[in-house]
Computed example of a mutant assay.
Amino acid sequence: MGRRFGAAIGRAGWSWLPVSRGSRIVVALLAMLVGGCGARLGPAPVYVPGEPAPAGFYRIHAGDTLSDIAVREGIDTKTLVQWNDLEPPYEILAGGLLRIAPPARPRPSVEPITPSVGRSTPSERPVPTVSSIIGGGAQQAPEPPKPKAATRRAPNRAAEPSARPAVDSGIDWQWPIVGRVVRTFDAGDRTRQGIRIAARPGQIVAAAATGTIGYSGGGLTGYGNLIIIKHKNKYLSAYAFNRRLLVTKGEKVTRGQPIAEVGQTTGGETQLHFEIRKDGAAVDPLQFLPRRH
């Protein structure tokens, strides 16, 4: 509360104070003292515009919401609220810093990290699409490190029914996860360009077919942590709302290889959003995946 009071005085200006210059100086000192009180976790590092966010912090961008950042970083929203000492209605401001790592006691010195590539504001770039990312039209978000254990996991064959698909694409497809389809494809609805499959938090997502990773990151609005795989015959598959990404761009993967862990959608549901595209256009995945009995 002390910080907000001090900031409010700074934003309001001095024109409303009918006092002398000396009185203004006294009030300014009081505002500085009040603004330094009340922080339970200690003040955030000093931030200079244009510099990267310190380690353990995220620089808030225009259009960001607390829930979006929580999903992107794989952190519970309540945890972010506690770490940052936020109060209802949990407002965050573009350009500010948000703690995304637990505070240590005593706090270590804060070292700057390399600026994230592709973290420009919406006014500085067009909104990217799945097709533009594959075509190189959008900047890539930073790719997470690949865990060493990811390549040692056995292929996920459990999601593979035996019935033939309705469309023969020349590609041997399999289901990316075992789960119930809770939302189907609708070519006329831009929000339903794929299917949604219910899952457990952290459930392994498998490559639906052999190919090359064309994208692995969180820079595409509305998809969370996203993986796109390029396949033969101008097909690609997309896997959205992942909690953790296990592969990086340029990596070759085989059908059934673990590539991610299931996370949450922007609505908070634990689901995988799965798309198949031909020549950049979305098609119904249920026409290509093996039919379930």
Rank of each mutant, 00 (worst) to 15 (best):
D68S: 08
I276A: 03
G136D: 11
H293L: 15
E73C: 05
I113A: 05
I9T: 11
R190Y: 04
P45G: 07
L289W: 00
D279Q: 14
G202Q: 08
T191A: 14
T266F: 11
G218H: 10
A70E: 15
S109H: 06
P122N: 04
T121N: 14
L41K: 14
D85A: 10
Y239N: 02
A187Q: 09
N233G: 13
F274N: 00
L93C: 14
V34R: 01
P18T: 12
R183W: 09
F274M: 08
A150L: 06
L289K: 02
L286A: 05
L98H: 03
Q174E: 14
P54Q: 02
K78E: 13
I25Y: 06
Q140F: 15
W173I: 15
A70S: 07
W173P: 09
T79V: 06
T65D: 00
E111S: 11
R40A: 06
P43T: 05
G194I: 12
T248D: 00
K232M: 12
P54L: 07
L66D: 08
T248E: 05
N225H: 07
A159R: 12
S132W: 15
T151N: 10
K146F: 10
A240T: 05
S123G: 08
T212H: 04
I213K: 13
D76V: 00
P54E: 04
F288K: 04
R183E: 07
R3E: 09
I276W: 01
R152G: 07
P147Q: 10
L98S: 11
T265F: 05
V127Q: 11
A28W: 06
R292Q: 15
A240V: 08
G10W: 04
A53V: 06
Y90W: 14
P176M: 15
Y215M: 10
A159H: 12
G36I: 06
G256K: 04
R125L: 13
L98R: 12
T65R: 01
N156Q: 13
P290F: 09
S120W: 10
G6M: 13
H61I: 08
L286N: 05
E143H: 12
V283C: 02
P161V: 09
G219M: 06
Y235T: 04
R105C: 07
A207K: 11
T65Q: 03
P128G: 01
T210G: 10
R277L: 14
V46E: 14
W83M: 12
H273Y: 15
G74V: 08
Y90S: 03
G50Y: 07
L246N: 01
G179L: 03
A207L: 12
P43C: 03
G256H: 01
G36P: 03
T79Q: 13
L289N: 06
Q203P: 03
S132I: 05
D68L: 14
P161T: 06
E160F: 00
S120V: 13
T248C: 01
G194C: 10
A198K: 09
D68I: 11
F288I: 11
P161S: 02
G170T: 07
A55S: 01
V27Y: 07
L41Q: 15
V167M: 10
R255G: 00
S123F: 01
L245C: 00
G179H: 09
A282E: 09
F274S: 03
E91N: 12
V117G: 06
A207F: 06
G74W: 07
P144M: 12
R243P: 00
R164S: 11
G224S: 01
I25C: 01
T184E: 13
I204W: 15
Q264N: 07
A141P: 09
Y47K: 04
